[in-house]
Nucleic acid binder design. Sequence first.
DNA 1: ATATTGTTTTAAACTAAATTTAAAACGTTT
DNA 2: AAACGTTTTAAATTTAGTTTAAAACAATAT
Lengths: 203, 203
Amino acid sequence: MAKNKNTEQKIFDAATELFVEKGVDRTSVRDIASKAGINLALMNYYFRSKENLFDAIFTNLVQKNTKDLIQILDSDLALPEKIRKYVSAYIDILIDNPLLVSFFMAILHRSREKITEMEVVSNLYGREIFTQQIIEEGKKGNIRKTDPSHFFVDMISMITFPFAIKPLIKHKNELSEEEFNAFIEERKTTIPEMLLKTLQPCE
Amino acid sequence: MAKNKNTEQKIFDAATELFVEKGVDRTSVRDIASKAGINLALMNYYFRSKENLFDAIFTNLVQKNTKDLIQILDSDLALPEKIRKYVSAYIDILIDNPLLVSFFMAILHRSREKITEMEVVSNLYGREIFTQQIIEEGKKGNIRKTDPSHFFVDMISMITFPFAIKPLIKHKNELSEEEFNAFIEERKTTIPEMLLKTLQPCE
DNA sequence: ATATTGTTTTAAACTAAATTTAAAACGTTT
DNA sequence: AAACGTTTTAAATTTAGTTTAAAACAATAT
């Protein structure tokens, strides 16, 4: 009974480490088995396939890291504060978890449709409270009338995409790793600035 | 002599079609050979590897489609007009070439570094004239002083990323294919609006 | 016209990786 | 300790990409 959980966990842990280290595709099931000190076939016994194992790890990783994000969107903070916090928290997560970015890329690559089926991801998108908040504030005239679906897409695009093209940004701006991180840190203020400016009612 | 070009082209065409249809990873070299009606080994004879064939197709595709984009950025149009045209042209390209998006994802997935080495892609990024224009206009006080590298990243993020997460957007907003395209069409105006608003000097 | 040389094509082999199978080992329950 | 379910193992199978060695073909020189 203890051994049971143990083996499954050993596979999970070994795979996680290797996936971070070498990327999903460059990690073979044999690598995982050898690192976990188990037989090759056990990977298929516990997780039906490498793909499945990947999903399990990804789901776990997203779940752990995105609770806060959802809480922020669903909170009763005022829009400016909420947006600043959200952007900042989201960026911190992506800085701390390079794995998350490459996993996301891996999924978008394999089959873009798949992302829809993954509840953990789907859950992050289009929170009702935040959507309503933008509509309400628009009605009240506190902000310019804004389509929440565009606004949300704008926001997550500006947060996420730069991580996807990190090597390109580094190369084109001749940034070291630290300088890239500084660049990203700057975005914690530039992105909310831009978003809030669009929301301004003043013409 | 004719046969020569013929075979190479047949491989190229068959691979392109299959890559669109099933994605790069789910297309085997045997599929390509069979569709092109050629022997398996010819794929390696003409293109050294599947990866190479992929690169050839991608490079060709990008080259064909991005000449206009570069021209717009390098033109002497005023900023507002330039931004509107660029966003619109870029979106049109991505609507017309779903392959471009999935290829881009494929590359970012395999090795994010690779994108840096691909001149066709690297060329699109950080055009000197556009960068200078933003700095100059800032100095003249025509626009708010703006960091061109952030501005450019914001722009391409908002243009590109929504295509990457198309299934998620469709699903969450319950959009049909046509409605998604309409949504994207709207972005031809919302994105420039947002970008131009950030540039406004008025405080 | 035929031999030589270079190019293109073929069939078969090789390699590496994921997955499946069938049986052995282990534990629990009766 | 017998029977049953669970876990583990070693070996086989399958699927891909790539390589090899030779055959077919084409062009040119003898």
